[in-house]
Design a protein around this nucleic acid. Structure first.
Lengths: 363, 363
DNA sequence: ATTATCATTGAGACCGGTCTCAATTAGTGT
DNA sequence: ACACTAATTGAGACCGGTCTCAATGATAAT
């Protein structure tokens, strides 16, 4: 009487075995699809399973096999189209190989990233794909490695960590983008990026702990330097971590009379926000200011003028890193691979020659 | 000699117990944080755990407790900003309550959706959030319900399924949007949506199995009808399921001389593609054609002119549905709730009066 | 001092699968 | 017909936790 409804206990192999009048081991063999059984028994068990509506408990299965069939992915921000496209690439590749994806986003905060990694390891994911927020503190990533699970890095390399890595040629493409601006005659070029360090004040590259960001700045500075632009560092603006911050930075950047004649935006979210500010201030692209943004986001092709962009193979980035990881999961023991995907620049209409004022500075 | 390296077997409670010289049960109590133990033993076990670098196996934990701490989410397409924003809302709410999210996308295909649901149930997720692709075939959703796991519906209601549901007032907002167009003088208004049925030919509402889509069309037709527009059904275009298809539809729609004077796009991906075609054809918005799109996507505010949009509270949609599900997970037994979130229209510059040609048709 | 009460602890069953190993049955060669 | 190998099947250990229940020791009440 006291015994409440048995909470619909799920059907187990034992239940099926009993129904089919065979041993648990035999039922498990056909249900799990491993051992060999006679045709008759196979049919009996399948019939019993169907009759009872048996559903395997993947949890129990993973516990004994040690494999979960899940790939853990930790990205900076799912909402950023860059990441959502990369994640799409990852999950397509994963599904094609029979794996599932469990997603966590770090918000680019190292502590959140660590917690996410710890949790995913706890859940016994088969492997992890991470876009490390920092290169300083990678103890949690070493832990993954130490736990025997393969790790692959997406978009950001870590020189100290010898694991499969897929990045794009950030440094090179940043140079090409900057060169386009320089060749159009610009001397006052601002670079706006998301990473936050020392309250947005850029001193030197050693304060940037995200490899892709650092490489881009490196490329930018190199070309500026080659072009004889004095102290290009002052044109690097950090801290565009949210639309609000970006708006603040862009407004400050564009208001004074000594504003740059061109801006290079480090991702499409930043580029969009800057473009909005440009619009709001009544400035015209490219007459008053030229603009190039990283990532060929959808909005960049429908503005007037359409925006010149750095087109990274984002989907491939995700697909490739997943494929690399899966290969490892399947027993590949080749040394770690570092794939660098080529990037192109799509020249549209947002780059022009600087307004005359800038000629005074020309060397 | 033959015995290979023990593949770094992970540290278990038993190992910690041995190290701390207590029983497995006692070690488990402090490690699992449940029973009561003396301070000394607690300290000993913690020390041993730290020394051995113990990491709990969540899999084993979930298997005994029956709870995995995971919410399964099945959406139509992660890449669609609508869904990625909703997922962001879900995962924020989930994390706040200590849950994790495992994501699967169905590509709006019912079979893929079924497989995803089956898999997630197999993984013993605590609850599921689904955007059902079809209202016809919901056997798999009933299964969830039957398995004792709570289910919550996102963006699309299912009249036959009495579960927590969060939607927006699609019908009403579609009416408001259509009315804006009608009041601007339009009589030839096209409605373009993604759902695919009968090769894109729209006959009547019974062929639409996605509630949100149906409701929007319903609202659209109702207002057209009230305005005395003859046979508005011919203006409903289905099948805009990919950028390519949308482009095809839009090109066909916009080329002939009897093209509509206004278009209502059912999501931002469709709106974007249509806008691109408009641009490519050299037409001008809103002089030649007026455009309203669902979803306040980022690109809609930076075009010239900026686009009038239906602004759905997408983030809240995700957040609310997750909160509802979590409440249920925590033992709430109230009857299923059907939340309908209010939607607004942001009027920007893409609606104008129709070009003169349309006056001939005016009633 | 003696017994009842309570806090700690240990032993071992259990979750639902996989998998090893031995036992049983069937098939083969001579 | 008889020994021998191959194919099936069953019993039970195991994965790494949780959790029940009984045993132990200590403290409190009589």
């Amino acid at each position: 009487m006291k015994k409440a409804t048995p909470k619909s206990r799920s059907v187990t192999v034992s239940d099926v075995a009993r129904e089919a009048k065979v041993s648990k081991a035999t039922a498990a063999r056909v249900l799990g699809g491993y051992g060999a059984v006679s045709d008759k028994v196979h049919a009996d068990v399948m019939a019993a399973a169907k009759a009872l509506d048996y559903r395997p408990n993947e949890l129990a299965r993973s516990m004994t096999t040690g494999k979960s069939g899940i790939i853990g992915v930790v990205v900076g921000d799912i909402e950023n189209p860059f990441f959502s496209l990369a994640v799409r690439g990852i999950s397509d590749a994963a599904r094609a190989a029979g794996f599932n994806v469990i997603l966590a986003n770090s918000g680019e905060q190292i502590e959140v990233e660590k917690a996410a990694v710890r949790l995913l390891i706890g859940k016994r994911v088969d492997g992890l794909i991470v876009t490390p927020a920092e290169s300083r503190d990678i103890s949690h990533l070493r832990d993954i490695y130490r736990s025997g699970r393969p790790l692959a890095l997406l978009d950001r390399a870590l020189p100290d960590l010898d694991v499969d890595t897929v990045t794009v040629d950030d440094r090179d493409v940043a140079m090409r983008a900057t060169r386009i601006l320089v060749e159009a005659g610009h001397r006052e070029i601002a670079y706006v990026t998301a990473v936050d360090a020392d309250g947005g004040r850029f001193r030197d590259l050693t304060q940037i702990y995200t490899s892709s960001v650092r490489e881009r700045i490196e490329g930018f500075l190199a070309v500026c330097h080659d072009a004889g632009i004095a102290d290009p560092k002052r044109h690097v603006h950090l801290g565009a971590t949210s639309p609000e911050e970006t708006c603040r930075i862009a407004t400050k950047l564009l208001s004074p009379s000594d504003r740059p004649t061109a801006i290079l935006a480090s991702d499409s979210l930043i580029g969009l926000e800057i473009f909005k500010v440009i619009l709001a201030l009544g400035l015209s692209v490219p007459k008053d200011i030229s603009l190039i943004t990283f990532h060929d986001a959808d909005w960049t092709s429908v503005t007037s003028p359409p925006i010149t962009v750095v087109d990274q193979p984002v989907y491939s980035l995700g697909k490739s890193v997943a494929e690399l990881l899966i290969r490892r999961l399947q027993g590949d023991t080749r040394p770690a691979e570092r794939l660098v995907l080529p990037t192109s620049i799509i020249e549209r209409g947002s780059v022009g020659s600087p307004p005359k004022r800038s000629l005074e500075t020309a060397g």
